[in-house]
Structures are given as C-alpha cells and as structure tokens.
Design a protein around this nucleic acid. Structure first.
Lengths: 148, 148
DNA sequence: GTACCTGCAAAACCTTTGCAGCATC
DNA sequence: GATGCTGCAAAGGTTTTGCAGGTAC
C-alpha cells in the first residue's frame, strides 16, 4: 500500500506525538512503529517479536511495554479479533478499519470500505451517556481457499 | 427479560438441537444453558464456574469442554469483547446482539437495536467469496458512572 | 455394554511484573 | 545526572489436554 515516503511520514508523525506526550525516542519505538505500519494487517505480540526487524533488537517484554505506551498515547490500537492473543494496529488520525477473518485458516483481511456504524456512535453517546465511544467490527467466515 | 416459561423454552430448544447433533443430555449441559440464558450479558468461563448453579456440580474443565461442544453445535456463541478472557452468550435463532462496553469498569450492556451491518454481510460474501459470514460489533467508551 | 462425559491434575500459552543496568534527554 | 527504557527471569491468569472412572443411551 503505502510507499516508503508515506511510511516514513507516518512513523514521523507517531514518534512526534509520542515525544510531545513524554515518551523517549528509542530505537525500539521506531522499529516497532515501522513494522506495524508496513504490515497491512493487525499483528500480535508474538508476530511482532518474530519480525526480524524487531527480534534482533528487542526483548518481548520491551515490545509488550512499548505497545502499552503507544496505545496510551493513541498512536496504535488494540484489537480483540476473537483470538486468544491481542492484536495491534497502527492508528493514523481519521483512519478506521474493519476486518474480515477466516475462522478456518486465521487469515485477516483489512476492509477498505466506508465504515457503516460510524454514524451510530454519536447517536449512542446521546442515548446511553457513554463518552469517548469507538468501536470494533469484525466479520467472520470461511475464505474461498478454505472452502475450496 | 424472559420469564421462566420463556427460559425453559429456550433451554429445551438448545438441548433438543444438541441431542439431534449427537451430544448427550447431561445435567451439566442443562445447567450451563440455564445460567447462560438467564444472564442478559455474555459471561466468561470464570463467571460461569463462579455461578453457584454450576460450581456445585461441574468442574471448570467440564464447563470449558461443554462450551466448545455447544458452540460447535451452534447454540452458543463465543465473543472476544476485547478482554483477555473469552465471553460466551446464548445464540437463539434469528437473534443477534451488539454490545456496549465500559473500558473503565468493564460493564457490558447488550444493545437491543436493529443491527446496522446485517445487510452488509450478503454484499461482503459476494464481493469476497467468504461463506458463512457472521459478525461481532462492539462499542467501547466510558459509562456515565465512570466519568461522573 | 459402549461411547461419551466428568473430575482432577498438570501442561501450555500468553501476558504481566521485579529488578539491576543502560540510554535518552 | 536524573528519569525512563531495556533485558532477563520469574510469576500470574486463562485455556487446554491426559487419564481413570462414571453416566447416558
């Protein structure tokens, strides 16, 4: 999807946000962000630690704590995706994705479509009194290869 | 919500489906179904084992395996809900719920509204070739009490 | 009587934390 | 130089499995 220029732009944005919010600009942070941004799909902690770019340089505990910090600063998002392990994805302002998951092989597709429930959030906030609403929407089923 | 008659009807339906699909009609099965149906919210394995009706009679491993079987037979549904532990809910034909979760206190509300993405599923199946699609939709935010 | 289900116990898995040393600011 | 970050190691919590005995059919 994004070419190098685009990727670098996103890394810079994220690092900048983190710096302004009190985090230090470490090598681990930059590499974690790059791996997450280059991947089109959400990744688990194990996926991230398996990535050569990270495993060469960071311990799993470091990645774990980094994920927590980045999430707190709002530059990444944590997803359930119905799995035992948590998934993480990059969160660029104004971008939101829904997902299509194969329950047989586990493949995850990022849906590039207009999100159908965005408009509901405002309505729900009024009706329920909840604040800061966001949502997670996933579709599950069997992909063509698995049914094939 | 449902009164005793309604509850019993649902238990009977579920037990019947399970019997027809090869499971045995055990006491544990009936009690697990009752607890799940009486609860308006999704429950975790730990919640279920904590319930007096179950803890008196079943081991956690039994409940775990039972949940797997019931899910395979289609009478209950497994949810992610963004938590570490999996949640389970009763799945009556034609019923589908979305959820509103407080990220501070963990309270889960079942949303009784027309599901806004049902119509999308058919469209997605055509476009992606996936089959047997279903979805999970959750809204997260801070409930009035937690913000209060 | 046979096949499935249960209970107990232990293993597996992912997440989370403590602490001493190192890097960033 | 102070504070936050990292690595290693170990603990925590949930899920999953093995096996012997019990239960539904």
């Amino acid at each position: 999807m994004a070419e190098e220029k685009n990727i670098q732009e996103r890394i810079d944005w994220a690092v900048d946000v983190c710096r302004k919010r009190g985090l230090r600009r470490t090598k681990a942070m930059k590499q974690l962000l790059r791996v997450l941004i280059e991947s089109q799909c959400p990744l688990t902690l194990a996926d991230l630690c398996g990535a050569k770019a990270l495993s060469d340089h960071c311990d799993k505990a470091t990645v774990f704590r980094l994920l927590g910090r980045l999430q707190a600063k709002g530059v990444i998002r944590r997803l359930g995706l119905h799995e035992r392990a948590a998934y993480y994805t990059f969160a660029y302002p104004g971008e939101h994705f829904d997902y299509l998951v194969c329950t047989d092989c586990g493949k995850i597709e990022t849906l590039k479509m207009d999100c159908p429930v965005k408009v509901l959030e405002k309505d729900l906030m009024k009706r329920t009194g909840f604040s800061g609403l966001y949502h997670e929407l996933e579709f599950f089923g069997s992909c063509p290869q698995c049914v094939g």
